[in-house]
Design a protein around this nucleic acid. Sequence first.
DNA 1: TAGTGGTCTAGACCACGTG
DNA 2: ACGTGGTCTAGACCACTAC
Lengths: 256, 256
Amino acid sequence: MSITDLNFDIDRNSQTPMWLQIRDELYNCLHQEILRPGQLIPNEKTLVELFNVSIGTVRKAIGALENEGILIRKQGLGTFVFEHDANSFQFKYFHFVPRNSEETVIPNVELVSFERKKATKSEIEILNLPADNRNVFHIYNKLGFRNKFYIVDKIIISVAKFLSLTEEMYVNRNNTIYNLYQNKFNIFITDCSEKIRTVPANGETAKILGIDIDTPLLRIDRTGYTYHNEIVEIRTSYVHTSDIDYVRPHFSALGE
Amino acid sequence: MSITDLNFDIDRNSQTPMWLQIRDELYNCLHQEILRPGQLIPNEKTLVELFNVSIGTVRKAIGALENEGILIRKQGLGTFVFEHDANSFQFKYFHFVPRNSEETVIPNVELVSFERKKATKSEIEILNLPADNRNVFHIYNKLGFRNKFYIVDKIIISVAKFLSLTEEMYVNRNNTIYNLYQNKFNIFITDCSEKIRTVPANGETAKILGIDIDTPLLRIDRTGYTYHNEIVEIRTSYVHTSDIDYVRPHFSALGE
DNA sequence: TAGTGGTCTAGACCACGTG
DNA sequence: ACGTGGTCTAGACCACTAC
């Protein structure tokens, strides 16, 4: 199935601007994996014919998706579907730097445990688990720099959505976790939100990080969303901020 | 001095796109307060004549500044220079919500102390204080909801830049602090960055918040920037996250 | 050299807010 | 009714990338 085989019917008299209708059509093509991660999408001239509008309108639609971080335009090459990789992880989703430094550092990640569990009530609700499969994966990782670990990460995802996931597959991925979601399970994390507070380290976390029980940690609750704001990942990070800071880079624009 | 009295010379053969040149010219007019907070800027047709380009080019320049949060377009009304107020404070710069809630709450702010001090070496460096005035204001506030205080805020600003600032003026402002900066001192906070870690409460903070010494707190170091990335404010918040969370709303696009 | 997206034009018409 | 920004057109030409 190629996008160029489809027939699109843009309503020229709708309340919704044509560029937004086109943006939504493209968004749905991405959602339905008619356009896949890393893929080159049709050039602007082709889209003009496909949607039967002028090039400025197509460009405005693509520009909107580019601003959302879903498409990437490369002059001289074409427009591509965004693909999660180590680079994007570092700049978009990994927010720690060594204290008194501005550079983000690439962390080492090590699996602690990989389990399949019965979901709690809260997990069922947040992940909107289907009645016929109320199991979740719990994946614990530790992350750090230079042979020292500072972060324990607990990832919760639905078994229904990641049915064929195994510990081996998880360990042997040679890319980021979000890239695994995207390439093996057609699940694309489009954006996240986070909440932060302090908590004392519990016994398990303390042991993993080599610190005392009750050492104050940052607790970061991250919610990962895919298309149409569907929640697909709950992640809780426990962070020992002895030598590192959580960073929120320059912000200003309203919705960020 | 009105912007319409100026002569702009957009270079049609420059490497820099014309829309970006116009964006920069407008940015400088804002920086030099030729265009002031809350002010209506000339309409698009006037700007077309002023810069001698077509309307699409003007619109692209304005769109860039709108994305930066500096201009606000209102259909049917015109385009305005952004002005800090309680609303923008809440949505752009205040990042706390009661636990298990999605709504941001308007906090009450209360002055704890207002002092004029000799700057430390670090303050001189970060705020780039001039040799002839190496003093700073230290302003402590406490913030909370519903008669309980959770946050102690320490603001450090240069006396050189806020020369006429007094405690009375500070207390009697009937708007946000950033609005005061903007309206009385022509200093417009364009954006911020933040770093977060955990720290134990010191005696003073513990007393203000009514908690035990060494209670784990979030420490948030915020740097406030004005035009051309000039640092004008150093703010440190100590947050007792017993009932509230620090929130980072949806993010995805690269620079956010 | 061919193909891509990026810039720019010179309009027309629409939607919104105010008087 | 008027003035504002928002949408849309149908081009031309430029800058970048790959072969």
